[in-house]
Design a protein around this nucleic acid. Structure first.
Lengths: 234, 234
DNA sequence: CCTCAAATGTGAACCGGTTCACAAAAGTTT
DNA sequence: AAACTTTTGTGAACCGGTTCACATTTGAGG
């Protein structure tokens, strides 16, 4: 459905914090929102699948989305996890080709979908947005390239430590000084992010728990000593 | 030095075949070339280093360039090899940050350097170029993401086979039907492209040579049966 | 509250690829 | 052609991480 009148304000509030839309005037932003639609997904629901045509750009208003890809034997890589306020699906949108990965809702989600038909002309008309987009893509490219490097240079514990630090920083915003960052993710999924089995993830985490660096819970890991972790990542 | 008058035609000829500049009018192209400079590098010479400011966009007029990155223990990943007629260095250029990798001339090279100061306003003034750039970046991102997937899903021989096929396709253009593609690269460097040691590369190649799939020479591999290789890549 | 699915914990055997240690062959430089 | 450097060839020992096989804990849903 189109964005309801009483939701426009809150949607705008989310979008204008994003670097992609930060440079737009309130007017342009409203114009963009007018064409967009809000979609809700239940936890675990598929949002799109690898190989399908890339029809739109998606912004996460609420919830968390997993971008992943399947191998031949049913194994999975988690390429990215998109949090509230972030955007995904730009790649297929921009070059008009098929989606390169699967997207699924990890929690109940509310997404804002902007159609390709509306967005591409919008980019063409707003060079400033094009430049922002270029920046966002560069950022993604840097991140992915670093992932390749890490796969080659870093051993299992180092990759794990690094990923944990990254996840902690990107999700757990500690306002109070004493709030220890909690990473909400299963060991299985963690393994899929860095190319390790659940078992080896478990063994490394156990060692660190023993050392008092972190605490493993059910579907969550609490970082007690982020600096020690950073050290492990070399 | 600026491009000499008698070189303009040949430079233009190379640029206009590239998707990035294909949409420009001859006039716009000349305008861009007017600001560009030709630089020559000897084989093995460094072009830029990781961490240095990204001042320009570079196009390969002649030769071959290796984009790589060093790990802590002096080991190296080769992230990409840029052939004649292609462009590199866009990322640091576009977001104004430092270079994310090292670039070195693999052979004697002739590069066309376009300065950031000239290029960014050019992009701003030509929305069509911005869209092309977005496309190029998407392409790079798809490629790099696939590299991550391959590191996780594929075992050593499959990765090697896939990389060989890729290298064969991207460099050796067989005009005549009977010309077998030759990949000009050392086993060491091949290893650095897919995260394997020279020794294991050698052993896999030996097996395939035995099977008549390829022939290893000094600094070169001749693909005899590309389909068999593709099969190995699953 | 009881059952079921998801997540975690752990050990033994196995294995692909690295490390290390040499050798030999093919270019390059002088 | 002599001295070097680069590249390739090969085998033995080692090792990090997987595979497999269970056991246990925890949360969710009827």
């Amino acid at each position: 459905m189109p964005v309801k009148q009483d939701r426009v304000a809150v949607v705008r509030h989310i979008l204008e914090r994003h670097s992609l839309f930060g440079s737009l005037t309130p007017d342009e932003l409203d114009q963009l929102i007018a064409h967009a639609r809000v979609q809700t997904y239940a936890a675990r629901q598929t949002i799109f699948e690898k190989g399908s045509p890339g029809l739109g750009l998606l912004a996460v208003l609420k919830g968390r989305v997993r971008i992943s890809s399947l191998g031949r034997e049913g194994d999975q890589v988690v390429l990215n996890i998109i949090n509230e306020g972030d955007v995904f699906g730009e790649i297929a949108l921009l070059d008009g080709k098929d989606r390169t990965a699967d997207a699924a809702a990890m929690t109940e989600c509310e997404l804002l979908a902007i159609d390709r038909r509306d967005f591409v002309p919008f980019v063409r008309a707003n060079p400033e947005v094009a430049l922002r987009l270029l920046s966002v893509l560069c950022q993604r490219l840097r991140r992915t390239t670093e992932q390749v490097e890490d796969m080659i240079f870093l051993d299992a514990p180092a990759r794990l430590a690094k990923k944990l630090v990254e996840l902690a920083e990107q999700s757990g915003k500690p306002r109070g000084v004493k709030a220890e960052p909690v990473v909400t993710i299963s060991q299985h999924e963690l393994g899929n992010m860095i190319g390790l089995t659940r078992e080896s993830i478990n063994k490394h985490l156990s060692v660190w728990q023993q050392a008092g660096i972190l605490k493993v819970g059910h579907g969550a890991i609490t970082i007690l000593d982020a600096d020690a972790l950073r050290q492990q990542a070399e």
